[in-house]
Simulated assay, not measured.
Amino acid sequence: MDESASDKSPKVSKYPFLREHAAGISFLLVVLLLIGFFLYTTVSWMWDEQRLPLSKMVIQGDLHHVTTEDVQHSLAKLGHLGTFMSQDVDSLQQAMLTIPWVAHASIRKQWPDTINVFLTEYHAEAIWNGNELLNKQGQIFNGDIGQLQGSRVKLYGPKGTNEQVLELWEQINPEFHQLGLNISSVVLNERGAWQIILGNGVRLELGKDALHERIARFISLYKQLGTKADKVSYVDLRYDTGAAVGWLSDEESKQES
């Protein structure tokens, strides 16, 4: 075979598919680039604090102690709020829970720039150790005692006994109310002994054991005292039977009156 003839034979392309569909592939690449650019600009816009800030706040809930200023101060601790898309709801919720009177917080973002804040306050059932508060479940919280409306029983006890002391007060309080007596304080000391202070100033020493039996003994005694009950200073019930009664002096009795 002539070598020159073989050199003149037509050449076959290695990429016939690319040559035939070059225009379509180019168009597809352009479309993908446009889509990518659109997504990039959209995400950038949604995360731009200047274009999509969280600028409105709606506070809801049956609130008696928490103020708008409390919420604003709590949010200020976050530094600054992000955009509608970037701001984390959990961090907003945790910020709300740092407000002393807040028991529960629910946060919702409303398009395009609003934070909806729903708050539930603690209800103060008692004052604990003079400077803290207890709710109905015996949980300690640090609400401002000066904001309380009306009086609260004062409970005292070692660390970790808050639920125990509250439970005893809840059990015995109705019994004293039936006598027209108000419990001012319930004290559990470090040795595990109990003491009750009534609203009229009478002090009950109950000791460690048989608390309910000793309280029943006091109630029976109080009913027998009649008008003399106004002159009682203290009642010591730390006996198997009976009680020791301390009396106010005539001068102290007059001052009490």
Rank of each mutant, 00 (worst) to 15 (best):
P158H: 04
I183G: 00
G207A: 10
E163W: 04
I196E: 14
G180R: 05
E213L: 15
E170H: 11
N162K: 01
N189S: 08
L198M: 15
G157A: 03
D209Q: 06
Y156N: 15
L166V: 01
E175T: 13
L179G: 02
G180I: 04
W169Y: 15
E163D: 03
S185M: 10
N200A: 13
N162P: 02
E167I: 00
G180M: 07
A193M: 05
A193D: 14
Y156C: 03
L188H: 06
W194E: 13
E213Q: 11
L168T: 07
V165F: 11
S184I: 06
A210W: 03
P158W: 01
E190I: 12
P174K: 04
Q164D: 06
K159A: 06
R203G: 11
V202H: 12
S185A: 12
S185C: 08
I197S: 06
G201A: 10
G207K: 05
R214W: 04
I183C: 01
G157Q: 00
W169E: 14
A210S: 13
L211I: 10
G192E: 03
L166T: 00
V186C: 00
Q164W: 00
Y156E: 10
E167S: 13
R191E: 06
P158V: 00
P174T: 08
G199P: 10
N200F: 12
L179T: 02
T161D: 10
N173C: 04
G199A: 08
G199M: 14
V165Y: 05
K159H: 05
R203H: 14
G201Q: 12
R214V: 10
K208N: 02
I196L: 15
K208F: 05
E205K: 09
D209S: 09
L198N: 11
L198I: 09
Q195F: 15
V202I: 14
N182W: 09
E213H: 14
L204A: 15
D209V: 00
R214G: 11
Q171N: 03
K208D: 03
P174S: 06
A210N: 15
W169S: 11
